[in-house]
């Protein structure tokens, strides 16, 4: 067991260290999220009721776009410098270090969004009780975005114009996450309760956690060949 965890922790630790050393990239993603969210009140006007109504959707769409912004970096550097070949030649299962990479990527790019989202929600005058639901929905939803996005990133690896293709490929797949993520906060505010939405998100997370790394590993093998 500990032998199998060796490569997992090695990849996780290295990617987190790299994210720290290249933290400007991480901050750009976060700044993008903040700026996009802040643009909406200027665009639609400062009517509190209207802002309150659009807040969950705006936050979720912005989270989705900023996730997209950093996705192409997930495997590109390792592909270019040959690290990916070396990782594919390790005796341990490919899925193991693929999960470690996605995990590190989410900690560097997804987790900061979850942390700053409640602050931004206050700008939209979202009521205090809904903040918890918002955090929970993002905490469950952004890992799904990272996992699905990783499959897209692996499939478009090394292609010309891969970034654009990646967006076209994964954005439709993000739609259910958007619906249930933003819907969770709306459901709470309308008094229905967010439990159903959050359970569906949890289920989605477990399903993608089980399947996406397999697809990702297969796509990486093809990309390297």
């Amino acid at each position: 067991m500990s032998r199998a965890l060796g490569p997992f922790t090695a990849v996780l630790g290295r990617d987190l260290l790299l994210a720290w050393r290249g933290r400007a990239d991480v901050l750009v993603t976060l700044a993008f999220f903040v700026v996009v969210v802040c643009l909406f009140p200027f665009g639609v006007g400062a009517e509190p009721n209207q802002l309150r109504a659009i807040a969950p959707g705006v936050l979720w769409v912005a989270a989705l776009l900023s996730t997209l912004l950093s996705l192409h970096r997930l495997f590109a550097q390792d592909h270019a410098d040959g690290t990916l070949e070396q990782l594919l030649l390790t005796p341990e299962p490919t899925v193991l270090w693929v999960v470690a990479k996605i995990c590190a990527h989410w900690i560097a790019t997804g987790l900061p969004l979850v942390v700053v989202a409640p602050g931004l929600a206050l700008l939209f005058d979202v009521e205090q009780g809904a903040l918890g639901v918002l955090i929970l929905s993002l905490a469950l939803g952004t890992p799904i975005l990272a996992l699905l996005g990783a499959v897209g990133a692996a499939l478009t690896l090394g292609l010309r114009g891969g970034g654009m293709l990646l967006a076209l490929l994964v954005l439709p797949l993000f739609v259910p996450v958007l619906i249930f993520g933003a819907g969770a906060v709306d459901a709470y505010l309308s008094g229905v309760g967010a439990q159903a939405h959050l359970l569906l998100l949890s289920g989605g997370l477990l399903a993608t956690l089980a399947l996406a790394p397999l697809a990702c590993a297969a796509a990486l093998r093809i990309a390297v060949e």
Binding site: R21, A80, D81, G82, E85
Partner: peptide, 10 residues
Amino acid sequence: GHAPALNDLL
């Protein structure tokens, strides 16, 4: 292989 598998930041 050809590529030295080095990351520039490490």
